[in-house]
Design a protein around this nucleic acid. Structure first.
Length: 526
RNA sequence: CGGAGCGUAGCGCAGCUUGGCUAGCGCGCCUGCUUUGGGAGCAGGAGGUCGCGAGUUCAAAUCUCGCCGCUCCGACCA
C-alpha cells in the first residue's frame, strides 16, 4: 500500500539532491549553520546537538544568493550546459504547467485559439519591420549552416514571432469577415542576453505570445487592454501577486509597438519586475507584411494588431514576492502539491499510521494531495524539505493523533501548527488553503503599500533608491531627456504610467520641475 | 559590457604559495542493523579525464599562456 505512482514521481524528481556541506567554506550554495546554533522558527528551538544543517542564505544577508539558493534548493531549475540557459526541473515545470492552465483557460474564454509557428525566421521576413529588427538585432542568434552546407539565407531564432506570424496572417486574412483573428502560441523564444539569471533573464525562455488582427484601432486597443487585464486578474488571483497596471514610456516600449501596457510587481528586495506586457501594434506590421482585408466599403485596408505575452519569469516573481528564509512559499492556487501528508510512526504503529494516511489521501482527493511515505527520511527531514519546496499545507499524522482522532495541520505561510479533529480535516483543509491564498495576497499588497513612496525631486528619488527602494511615485513631464537623466542619476526607470485605479494624480517633474504633470511609478527594475 | 571571485567525487570544500609516494575531508549515495513528533546512530563500502586545450619540466591539481563556464557587484533588456 505504501507505493503509488505519484510517489515514485517525487522520488525521481529528487534524484541527486544534496543539502549539506562541510565546515570551513565561504561562498557557498548552502551555508553551514554554526554549531549549536538553534534552528529557531516560530518559537520552536531544535537541533541543539552538534549537527550540520543546511541553510538557505538569509534574504537580508544577500538577496541574490537567497534567490538562487531557493531556485536550486527547491529544485525548480538547474543550470544547463548551455550558456545562459536553465533546465526547468519537474517542480518548476509543474508550476509552469499550472500557470499555463490558468492563463490558457482565460485566453480561450475571450475567443483566442492556440496554434504553433516555426522557431526559425528567414532573415528577409524578420527584417521587414525596421524598428522591430533594430530592437532585437543584437539578441538574435542566426542559423547559417545546415545539412553540411551554408544556407542561402540566414535563419534567425525567434526572439518573438510578430513577423513570421504576420506573414501567415497575410495569407489568412482576406475580408473583414475573417476578423478579428485571435491566435496564441505557447513556445520558447531566445534572446542572447549578456547577463542571465534563473527564470528572470535566460537566453531561452518559456512563454506564450498572443497575436491578434482587428478591423480598426479601437477594437485592437480594446483587445490589448483586455489582455493586460487578463494578466492582472490571473497574477493577482492565482499567483497572489499585486501588480500596478499602466502604460510604458517611449523608451521602455516593445520594438515595433505604438503602445505597450504592462503589469509591474514589487519584489521583496524593493526592485520592480515587469510581469507581463500587451502591445497595441497599430498597422505597422500589417503594412510591411501585407496583412490587408477588403472592408465592407470595398476598400483594401491594413489590419490593426496586438501582441501580448508572459514568460516563465512569473516563476521568479513568485519566488521573490512570497519566499522566506526557509525557501519557497507557494500560493495554493498554483502549488503543484497543495497538501502534503507526513506520516510519523514506529515499527509497531506503522501499519495503522500509513493506513490512516492513505485514507486521508482519499478524503482529500479534491485537492492536490501527496502522501510522503518515503522510508529513507525522518519526519523532521520531510518537514524541512516540503517547506523549502513551498507546499502550502502540511498534515502530520502519528500515533498520538490516532489516539486522539486528530491530525496536525501546519501552514507554510505563517508556520502555525494546529490540531484538527479528523472529521473536520476536509473542510478545514480547503478553508485554510483559501485563507492562505487570501492572506498571501494581502501580505504582498501590504508590503507594496509600505514600500511605495513619493518623491518630489531627483535627490529624493536617489535617496530612496540608495535606501529601501520600492515603488516611488513622482512627476514626469513626458520628455525622454528627463527620463534618461533621472535614470542616469538614480538608476530608477519609469516602470509605468499608471492608469485606472492605479492613477496617482499629478506632481512636479522630478527633473525639470515642470508643474502639474502626471505622477508615474519609478523603480529599479529586474 | 566593466570590476571581483570561483571551477578538484552527486553537493560543499581542503590541497596550489614552495611541482614529487595511493589527491584528502564532510554531507549525500550503496549494504546491514538499530531508529522515526523538526534535516537519526553505528559499522562496512562504492565513487575522481583535478573545467577544456596547449606549453614548461624527469615529473603538473600545483607554474605559464589561451579558451570555456559559473557566481557576486555595477552599466543595458520579457
Amino acid at each position: 500500500m505504501t507505493s503509488r505512482t505519484d510517489c515514485s514521481r517525487y522520488r525521481a524528481e529528487r534524484a541527486g539532491s544534496t543539502r549539506c556541506r562541510n565546515e570551513g567554506g565561504t561562498a557557498a550554495f548552502f551555508v553551514l549553520r554554526g554549531r549549536r546554533a538553534p534552528f529557531v522558527w516560530k518559537g520552536v528551538s531544535t537541533l541543539s546537538k552538534e549537527s550540520y544543517v543546511e541553510r538557505i542564505t538569509p534574504q537580508d544577508e544577500n538577496f541574490s544568493r537567497w534567490y538562487t539558493d531557493v531556485v536550486r534548493g527547491a529544485e525548480l531549475a538547474d543550470y544547463a550546459p548551455v550558456r545562459g540557459c536553465i533546465v526547468v526541473r519537474p517542480h518548476g515545470y509543474a508550476i509552469w504547467e499550472n500557470i499555463q492552465g490558468g492563463l490558457d483557460a482565460r485566453f480561450k474564454e475571450t475567443g483566442v485559439q492556440n496554434a504553433y509557428f516555426p522557431m526559425l525566421i528567414p532573415e528577409s521576413i524578420f527584417a521587414k519591420e525596421a524598428e522591430h529588427i533594430e530592437g532585437f538585432a543584437p539578441e538574435v542568434p542566426w542559423v547559417t549552416h545546415a545539412g553540411g552546407e551554408e544556407l542561402q539565407e540566414r535563419l534567425g531564432i525567434r526572439p518573438s514571432s510578430e513577423t513570421i506570424i504576420g506573414t501567415m496572417f497575410a495569407k489568412w486574412v482576406e475580408s473583414y469577415r475573417d476578423l478579428p483573428l485571435l491566435i496564441n502560441q505557447w513556445c520558447s523564444v531566445m534572446r542572447w542576453e549578456k547577463a542571465t539569471y534563473p527564470f528572470l533573464r535566460t537566453s531561452e525562455f518559456l512563454w506564450q505570445e498572443g497575436h491578434t488582427c482587428h478591423r480598426d484601432e479601437e477594437e485592437a486597443r480594446k483587445r490589448a487592454e483586455m489582455m493586460i487585464e487578463v494578466y492582472r486578474d490571473f497574477i493577482e488571483e492565482t499567483l497572489a501577486i499585486p501588480v500596478a497596471v499602466g502604460l510604458k514610456s517611449e523608451s521602455e516600449k516593445f520594438a515595433g509597438a505604438i503602445d505597450t501596457f504592462t503589469v509591474e510587481a514589487l519584489m521583496q528586495d524593493g526592485r520592480a519586475l515587469q510581469a507581463g506586457t500587451s502591445h497595441y501594434l497599430g498597422d505597422g506590421f500589417a503594412e510591411v507584411l501585407g496583412i490587408e482585408y477588403l472592408d465592407e466599403d470595398g476598400h483594401l485596408k491594413p489590419v490593426h494588431q496586438t501582441s501580448w505575452g508572459v514568460s516563465h519569469r512569473l516563476i521568479g516573481g513568485l519566488i521573490m514576492v512570497h519566499g522566506d528564509n526557509r525557501g519557497l512559499v507557494l500560493p495554493p492556487a498554483i502549488a503543484p502539491v497543495q497538501v502534503v501528508v507526513v506520516p510519523i510512526y514506529r515499527d509497531d504503529t506503522r501499519d495503522a499510521v500509513l493506513g490512516a494516511c492513505e485514507q486521508l489521501e482519499q478524503e482529500l482527493a479534491d485537492l492536490r494531495v501527496h502522501v510522503d511515505d518515503r522510508e529513507e527520511h525522518t519526519p523532521g527531514w520531510k518537514f524541512n524539505e516540503w517547506e523549502l519546496r513551498g507546499t502550502p499545507l502540511r498534515v502530520e499524522l502519528g500515533p498520538r493523533d490516532l489516539e486522539n482522532d486528530q491530525v496536525m495541520l501546519v501552514r507554510r505561510d505563517t508556520g502555525d501548527k494546529t490540531p484538527i479533529p479528523r472529521a473536520e480535516l476536509v473542510t478545514t483543509a480547503s478553508e485554510t488553503l483559501d485563507a492562505i491564498q487570501k492572506d498571501m495576497y494581502g501580505k504582498a499588497r501590504k508590503f507594496r503599500e509600505d514600500n511605495t513612496h513619493r518623491a518630489e525631486s531627483v535627490d529624493e528619488l536617489d535617496a530612496l533608491m540608495k535606501g529601501e527602494r520600492g515603488f516611488v511615485l513622482g512627476g514626469w513631464c513626458g520628455s525622454s531627456e528627463c527620463e534618461a537623466k533621472i535614470k542616469a542619476e538614480t538608476g530608477a526607470t519609469i516602470r509605468c504610467l499608471p492608469f485606472g485605479e492605479h492613477k496617482y494624480g499629478s506632481g512636479t517633474c522630478l527633473s525639470c520641475s515642470k508643474q502639474n504633470v502626471p505622477a508615474v511609478i519609478f523603480a529599479r527594475a529586474y
